[in-house]
Design a protein around this nucleic acid. Sequence first.
DNA 1: CTCAGAGTCTATACCGGTTTAAATGCTGCG
DNA 2: CGCAGCATTTAAACCGGTATAGACTCTGAG
Lengths: 345, 345
Amino acid sequence: MARARPTIADVAAHAGVSKGLVSFALNNRPGVAPQTRERILAIAEELGWQPSVRARSLSVARSFALGLVITRDPEIITSDPFYPSFIAGVERELSPAGQALVLSVVSNEREELASYRKLVADGRIDGAFITDLRHDDLRLGLVQELGLPAVTLGRPESRPGVSSIPAVAMEDAAGIEEAVDHLAGLGHRRIAHVAGPARMLHGSHRRQAFDTAMRRAGLEPDLVIETDFKAADGARATRHLLAGPDRPTAIVYANDPMAIAGLGVAQHAGLNVPGDLSITGFDGTDIGEHVYPALSTIVADPVRWGSAAARVLLRMIAGDPTEDVDLPPARFVRRKSSGPAPRTP
Amino acid sequence: MARARPTIADVAAHAGVSKGLVSFALNNRPGVAPQTRERILAIAEELGWQPSVRARSLSVARSFALGLVITRDPEIITSDPFYPSFIAGVERELSPAGQALVLSVVSNEREELASYRKLVADGRIDGAFITDLRHDDLRLGLVQELGLPAVTLGRPESRPGVSSIPAVAMEDAAGIEEAVDHLAGLGHRRIAHVAGPARMLHGSHRRQAFDTAMRRAGLEPDLVIETDFKAADGARATRHLLAGPDRPTAIVYANDPMAIAGLGVAQHAGLNVPGDLSITGFDGTDIGEHVYPALSTIVADPVRWGSAAARVLLRMIAGDPTEDVDLPPARFVRRKSSGPAPRTP
DNA sequence: CTCAGAGTCTATACCGGTTTAAATGCTGCG
DNA sequence: CGCAGCATTTAAACCGGTATAGACTCTGAG
């Protein structure tokens, strides 16, 4: 019969001391005689004692877990590479810290808020990641209201009150500007942007960066189509752009799946990429490297982003002072899908 | 000042009964007078009482959470669409059941086993999903040893002892056979297979299905290359196949990212797809639909798989009898990347 | 020699539920 | 009328930790 796992009381009994003292010893608290402490630790070791997260949770009112709520329509099978990588980065920090990651996937904003509330009400998490920031994001007020430590990915435009919500930001605008500069430098004048949803902060950031870079190059950023970041949207937007009267010679997409879909549409229409049309993506999925022609894109580092965000959040929960973190900006990587503008006929 | 949330003791005090009776009433246990029960429920409602998962966890020795351990190298940004969808399906069941999902991402098998152990030792989970089954999978013995309720995705080849590990299986072989039949029917004789890792059960299943279908069509399944499911592997395998002496006219890939990479390689080599080379994938990512030519592939339903697996696991934990579940088989979907075999020169 | 104070350690309450044994009240039967 | 038997309810233990007040050394200064 498997012996039940030892509790702190067993350790206390074996050591001939009280429970409380064992607790002190195990938590490196002062007030325990050095040799007693050692004896207790040795016995705990020998008995194979491990703390019960459950019991500790109840008594210290913490859960030793962090929460991530992802909002997306589950029916839409999207090969967004961000989350898997981001989560891997988060785990890398949590695991050694003895923390767990609680994941929730919901379909819409209503459920999203409800999910945060529920996770907190159930005492499942001690802190949360806020990803995919939106304009007037209700989650910022919510975590404040709930008193839930949180970190945002990217800087929110405004934080409620004298906020204590640190941001871990990666400047994605720089990459877009690089891409536009690159294209303009290749002689492109009609450059379009297939943007992400404007209500999402990174969607509009990238768009603003596009506008800025275009104006700086003396071009009018008038060919912009807003999408939902889905491959199908990218295809639709591309068809629309190519069917237009004065079609672009280059398209800057807000993510890789849309760029790849756009590439497909262009090729389907008989265009040569990059001969007739240059294309750039955003995110650096591994597939982009292998399509033909290889996709010029803007690469970020979601694994690192995850680690950084987790570190900030852990520090915050520990009560240490935190401040915003700036990660190295996303960089434009030239591959084969972008080239010189076609000679005007 | 925010009133602390009410405990069962508050409810008891307001109702003028004992804690124990409140607990009975709230859990629909017999032995409580109907009108007392109602009064208690009304007061609990009025006070906005919610059970404390933490306290309940400690006293009933359950965590009300399920675990998913994903093994993959975090540095490899892979756009595998399976997990996000699978998780969405799982969540759809867990959330209404008041259960949470604890996610762990690890880099290799050693960490994987350690992760299961840790999750159980910490009492974080009541059950686990076992995905990406391998031959002689150590996890089966482990969950048995740990007494951890578990469900496998797909049927393991053998289960330890008189196993109590139910499987939720989706017949993926059927799709591969359909694909081969389709290609053979179009006149292809040299059909290659870019397979997944042989140590993974679905990798070798798909390969077996390929062999079977080939033999049935009177063809020799001699062009098979084993890979690690990564896009880069797909590209490499394709280059190898195309450089060979007697190059194939069709390639069946074990997943979509590899197929898309293969498509890129073929096009890069100046081949027309499907004119010179037919290509099929596996998984039905949304991108496949939008590349040019649209990828013929085999579509599964990971969302449904997730829901089914979660249901089985929940039932198991509840102590209800469970049995294996068979989901509808993956189906071949013909799109544009497969066509008649080229006329032999 | 006494007493203050530091250093150790114990006893006990507490976190918020569940569970069990025992107490209470009521009904109906002999 | 007495008592078995049932339904209802209470009190208290328990899950496994943490936290706090107080008790018990021992030392050193006055």
